[in-house]
Amino acid sequence: MTDEQDPTRLPPDTSLNRIALRVQDLDEMTRFYRQVVGLDVVARGDSQTVLGVGDEPLLVLLRDGDAPPRQRTQAGLFHTAFRVPSRAALGSALSRVRDQWRLEGASDHDVSEALYLSDPEDNGVELYCDRPREAWPRSADGTVEMGTRPLDLDAVAAAAAEAEMVPARAVPAGTAIGHVHLETTSLPAARSFYVDTLGFGVQVDDRGALFLAAGDYHHHVGLNTWNRRSEPAGGRGLAWVEIAVPDGDLLTTIRSRLTEAGVGCRDVEDGLAFEDPDGVDIRVRAE
């Protein structure tokens, strides 16, 4: 039975909708996500900035000067991954990072090509583009195989130059939050929550990490224990993650699953909110 047919699994048109970060310096963080990542400012106030593509919000920055720094022992955000629609757009992003910031890593994952950096408050950021789905390597059971090899940065930069996308100050239409990667204190507890209760499918389970997806995408949620976090999430950094599902009936089903699992829910803006086993605030919204 495929995930599309399995009523316990989230449908393939599930997506990551928005991410919110709790920040200390709203002005500096706004500049970074506008100038380096290339997002547009959708709305701006004294206590928050909403950034996205055109009028579509992707990232909410919430000013909280009283929040302490996240401790090295705490679970929480590993990185927010912004997916751009082409290799040329990734090359344009590479140009912005090189001109204005610091590139910390770059990898070819076979399913995607990715750049890695950190924002001014040490939140991880990934900028990536997917390879064509038909080119993704898969195991005999249909799950995705992801590798990690050095990325050919010259070829990525050349793609932007050939498409006349350098310099480009902003990401193009079609940019979205492709996935979120979290640091967890317990992979078994996280797997039980995200797979058995929420309904994501497992694409990769390897080397202290899980990569989970709705449908056959390579992953919408990553989870790892690489840094041996031992305490719940807290402090500055990730405030909440919003998942979009295609209809209200599914939202009702998810609420029932959470209730059966003993997970408390509260109503928020067109959806519901709850905490994962590490205290990360998750929101689910019906499109």
Score class of each variant (00 low, 15 high):
residue 185 T to L: 04
residue 142 G to I: 04
residue 248 G to N: 10
residue 177 I to F: 01
residue 41 V to S: 08
residue 277 P to K: 10
residue 164 E to G: 12
residue 132 P to R: 14
residue 39 L to A: 07
residue 139 S to R: 15
residue 235 G to C: 07
residue 268 V to I: 09
residue 281 D to M: 08
residue 47 S to I: 00
residue 185 T to I: 02
residue 6 D to R: 06
residue 34 R to D: 10
residue 37 V to L: 13
residue 259 T to R: 11
residue 229 R to D: 07
residue 191 R to A: 07
residue 263 V to Q: 07
residue 197 T to K: 08
residue 175 T to A: 03
residue 222 G to W: 02
residue 42 V to C: 04
residue 7 P to F: 03
residue 196 D to W: 13
residue 167 P to L: 11
residue 244 A to H: 00
residue 140 A to K: 11
residue 178 G to M: 00
residue 287 E to G: 13
residue 269 E to N: 14
residue 71 Q to L: 15
residue 33 Y to M: 10
residue 127 L to D: 13
residue 27 D to L: 14
residue 81 A to L: 01
residue 6 D to P: 03
residue 237 G to K: 13
residue 46 D to E: 15
residue 234 G to W: 09
residue 49 T to I: 03
residue 2 T to Y: 10
residue 78 F to H: 08
residue 174 G to K: 08
residue 272 L to A: 03
residue 269 E to C: 11
residue 242 E to L: 02
residue 97 V to A: 11
residue 95 S to C: 07
residue 194 Y to D: 00
residue 41 V to L: 07
residue 179 H to Q: 11
residue 237 G to A: 06
residue 45 G to C: 01
residue 188 P to H: 03
residue 132 P to F: 09
residue 153 L to N: 13
residue 53 V to R: 10
residue 274 F to Q: 05
residue 273 A to F: 02
residue 73 T to K: 11
residue 44 R to K: 15
residue 204 V to S: 03
residue 71 Q to V: 04
residue 42 V to Y: 04
residue 108 D to N: 15
residue 119 D to T: 13
residue 64 D to S: 12
residue 250 L to M: 08
residue 41 V to W: 10
residue 152 D to I: 13
residue 53 V to A: 10
residue 59 L to N: 02
residue 26 L to Y: 11
residue 18 R to T: 15
residue 241 V to N: 09
residue 238 L to G: 05
residue 67 A to T: 10
residue 101 W to C: 10
residue 33 Y to N: 08
residue 269 E to M: 10
residue 238 L to Q: 04
residue 7 P to Y: 04
residue 56 E to F: 09
residue 180 V to G: 02
residue 261 A to T: 06
residue 101 W to A: 12
residue 209 A to L: 00
residue 84 V to N: 02
residue 224 N to M: 05
residue 77 L to V: 04
residue 157 A to R: 10
residue 166 V to E: 11
residue 188 P to T: 05
residue 96 R to D: 02
residue 259 T to D: 15
residue 262 G to E: 11
residue 118 S to G: 02
residue 97 V to M: 11
residue 149 R to K: 15
residue 16 L to T: 14
residue 82 F to S: 06
residue 88 A to R: 14
residue 230 S to Y: 00
residue 257 R to A: 04
residue 252 T to A: 08
residue 124 G to T: 01
residue 115 L to Q: 01
residue 15 S to R: 13
residue 235 G to I: 01
residue 279 G to P: 09
residue 229 R to L: 03
residue 240 W to C: 01
residue 40 D to T: 07
residue 167 P to N: 04
residue 276 D to H: 09
residue 96 R to Q: 02
residue 79 H to W: 04
residue 217 Y to D: 07
residue 158 A to F: 14
residue 151 L to A: 14
residue 248 G to V: 06
residue 124 G to L: 02
residue 245 V to I: 11
residue 197 T to H: 02
residue 8 T to K: 04
residue 135 A to Y: 07
residue 176 A to M: 09
residue 198 L to Y: 05
residue 266 R to C: 01
residue 192 S to I: 00
residue 282 I to F: 13
residue 3 D to P: 07
residue 70 R to A: 14
residue 104 E to D: 15
residue 137 P to V: 10
residue 54 G to M: 11
residue 159 A to W: 13
residue 122 D to K: 15
residue 197 T to I: 06
residue 198 L to I: 08
residue 59 L to Y: 10
residue 175 T to I: 05
residue 198 L to F: 03
residue 87 R to M: 09
residue 114 A to L: 09
residue 192 S to P: 04
residue 252 T to N: 00
residue 84 V to Q: 08
residue 280 V to D: 01
residue 101 W to V: 12
residue 155 A to C: 12
residue 214 A to V: 03
residue 163 A to G: 11
residue 70 R to E: 15
residue 153 L to Q: 14
